[in-house]
Design a binder for these strands. Structure first.
Lengths: 145, 145
DNA sequence: TCAACAGTTTAGAATTGTTATAATGTAGTT
DNA sequence: AACTACATTATAACAATTCTAAACTGTTGA
């Protein structure tokens, strides 16, 4: 049975027509063992390669946002120039490797739960996320680039 | 004694010429009780008002980046469309109020230290920062905008 | 003091990332 | 097959940021 079947159903479930572009996008995004972190540009390239054919930037933006709104993707922001999406949509934490610009999910056991002792009055907490920036020990020249 | 004196010295210390624009910028940034969170556009407006005269966007970008490189400002990223700078350059945590788009420093006592049990092999941790997104309790319609 | 130089400011152009538009194409329904 | 609503596309528009080159200014040292 072709694996694309799953994604056709999945897309229908969330009210998106399973077009060739979207099925290919889903395969790139979700047909993998580990969670996947990507930028829009990464994704455009990967889908175009997979399809052996150009996919429009606009299509990728539209569909990524549609999947995000439906809860299948989540945006992660590292700094103003690096916006990533994550196929792991649960609230979870990240390492960011400053040498390689790579984002890595924290395993649930890597960090103890964050204990917030005092919240802003009248507000409820929607999410708590930790970002751990790492680099190799001899990488201090980054600061003087 | 004019308070600007401090900033002239401060600028000299970090190797920046104390021009009129920079001294005014420093007064807007650092002449306050509490730490200050701002966007570049906020800052351009505030400096122009203070000086009663236009300041060039490029100047503000240049000097903000210079101060950042020297360790007097720090960039905080909330999501791809909201980049803030912070006059509090220590490693510290934030609340982000999704109702007002306001960034608020956590008091050191508001959060217990984050306990990282496992790091990436061969890397050292440069920073650990927590972002707590909050909203008023009846604000769930945001999700369906 | 003032000339010379290096650093700075400026407006506007260029670039980058993202969103909007409108014409063409396609999936799903009948 | 034909109709309709939704999708895709290239391109335009837009916003944020960086670059550029000319004019300007703080600093140094004769």
């Amino acid at each position: 049975m072709p694996k694309t079947f799953n994604f056709i159903e999945k897309l229908r479930e969330v009210g998106l027509r399973p077009t060739k572009q979207r099925v290919n996008m889903c395969e790139v995004l979700f047909n993998r063992e580990k969670t996947f972190h990507f930028t829009i540009n990464d994704l455009v390239k990967m889908i175009s390669e997979k399809m052996n054919q150009k996919i429009s930037l606009a299509t990728v933006y539209n569909t990524v946002h549609a999947l995000e709104k439906k809860g299948y993707l989540k945006e992660i922001s590292i700094d103003s120039h690096k916006s990533y999406f994550d196929t792991n949509t649960s609230v979870h934490h990240h390492f960011f490797d400053e040498d390689t610009n790579e984002l890595i999910d924290c395993d649930e056991n890597d960090i103890e739960p964050v204990n917030i002792k005092k919240n802003i009055t009248g507000k409820k907490i929607n999410s708590v996320e930790v970002l751990i920036k790492v680099a190799s020990d001899n990488q201090n020249q980054k600061k003087f680039k």
